[in-house]
Structure formats: structure tokens, C-alpha cells
Amino acid sequence: MAVVETLLILLLASILIGAVGSLLGIGGGVFLIPIMTLGLGIDIKVAAATSLVTIIVTSSASAPKYLREGMVNISLGMFLEVFTVTGAIIGAMLIVYLSQSLVEALFAIVLIYAAVYMVFGMEGRKEVHAPAQPGTSTWRFNGRYRDEHTSETMHYGVKNLPRGALAGFVAGNLSGLIGVGGGIVKVPAMHIWMGVPMKAASATSNFMIGVTAVASALVYLANGLVAPIITAAAAIGIFIGAVIGSRFMPRMTGKGLRTMFSVVLVIIAVIMFLRAGGML
């Protein structure tokens, strides 16, 4: 494929992915990597490196909004970052020793998990875990957010720090291994295990993924797996798409749309499995 054609396809696809990711509340890696590998014939490790750089751009472009709204639990984010970064560095160091087909098979499993998560895992619970008392181990992680229905500031506490740390490590490891943000692991873990309200969990995850992705991206960079030209095209596209998605379109919470994209992810996962098994 000609250079201009490749870059144009990648740019347009990235704009779409940035907008869709913003609408669905997930990062674009699960869509970007298959387009690069299956559509443009790019090595999955290079695609993962590209995806990591776009994740940093997405996080940097959208985190300010959440920070201004006071939705981010910065203390909790800093705690979990220690574990996501550890996992990310280990994952990124392992990638050079894994075969392309193994990485593709692993990515396909994550796609199926992401598809299930999009249909069943994004419904927020209403109840909020009570804030911890001063002097207790989790008091430092008490958070607050503004409820958009009642316009009241809600206070919440955080529980199960060890479980959250484990989920953070797994999310970071996935990020380092296959170039996704890891929000599909972190957000439900923060919400279900740690008692963080869904919107605060999502905002905190978004705040963290840039740092997690940097830890992996630096290792990819040191491994010489970064392709600057396609990375630049994808990053511009994702940036434009994320701005369009967050500014001009309402957040889609309908299950129908998420189900539709989940089916797309399952189809991509099947193609990835077939490719990993040498059948395509």
C-alpha cells in the first residue's frame, strides 16, 4: 500500500476510533490495534507501541475536563499507579520474548473480555461506600464527586486496597503486553471491589492511563519498536476524534450501541484467533 494511502486510512480510522472511544467510554486500543494489524498489515508489537502513544494523548486530552470537574480521586490514582506501572514495565519487557501469534491470541482474549464488559459491566451501582474515619488505613483515599442529577457533592470511601492493587497490576501488565489502556480492568475493579462510584472510577482510570502507558512506551521505545510516522498519524487522528466525541456528541449509554460494538469486537477476536493459529 502507498505511504499516503496508508497514512490517510490510519488518520481517518483514528478519528473514528477517537470519537467512538469517547462515546463508549473506552480507550481506542481495542479498535486501533486490529485496524493496524489486520487492515494495514502492521506488526502487532509496532501497533501496540503506537496504541500506547495514542493512549497518552487521549489521557492528556481528556483528563483536564475530569480534573476541572473534581471527578478524579488523585490520591487513589497515585496509589494504584504504583501497581499499574510495575505491571506495565514487566509486560513491556516480556513482549520482546513473545511470538507474534501468542500476542495476537492474548489480544483476542482481551477483545472478548472487552466485548462482555461493554455489554454487562458498564452499569453503575447507585450505592456509595461510606467515607472512612480519620486515622483508618483508607482515610487518605476518601473521595468526592458532584452528582449531576442532584448537583450535590457526594462523599465516598474506598475499600479493598489490596484487591485494587492486584487489579492495577493486571491492568498495567495488559497495557505493557498488548498496548491497551487497561481501563476495562481498572474501572470495574475500582467500582465493584473498591466502592468507587462509576463516574469517579472512570475519571480516575483516565487520569492514570497516561502514566501507565508512558512506563510501557518508554520500554517499547528502548526496544526500537516505535514507528514515528504511523504513530504521529494515529495520535493526530485519535486527538481530533476524542475532541469531536467529547465536545459535540452526547455520551452514549444505550445498551444497543454497546452491544453492536461488542459484536464487532468478537468478530475481530475470532479473526485474531484464526490468524494466531495460522489459519488466515
Binding site: 489521557s59 492528556s60 486530552a61 483528563a63 483536564p64 475536563k65 480534573l67 476541572r68 473534581g70 478524579v72 480521586n73 488523585i74 490520591s75 487513589l76 461510606a130 467515607p131 472512612a132 474515619q133 480519620p134 482515610w139 487518605r140 483515599f141 476518601n142 473521595g143 468526592r144 462523599h155 497516561g210
Partner: peptide, 24 residues
């Protein structure tokens, strides 16, 4: 009870952090 240290992060600091990442 709800006033954990996270609340020590002032809106000014949150805005400063948001400016850093947006500028980047």
C-alpha cells in the same frame, strides 16, 4: 470523616495539573 487528604488538592492545583497535561 469525609474530609480525607484528597480534599487538600485545591481546585487551583487541579487546574494547574489539567493545564500541564492539556498543553502537552
Amino acid at each position: 470523616a469525609e474530609d480525607g487528604p484528597q480534599h487538600a488538592i485545591t481546585p487551583r492545583a487541579e487546574q494547574a495539573l489539567s493545564r500541564i497535561v492539556l498543553a502537552g
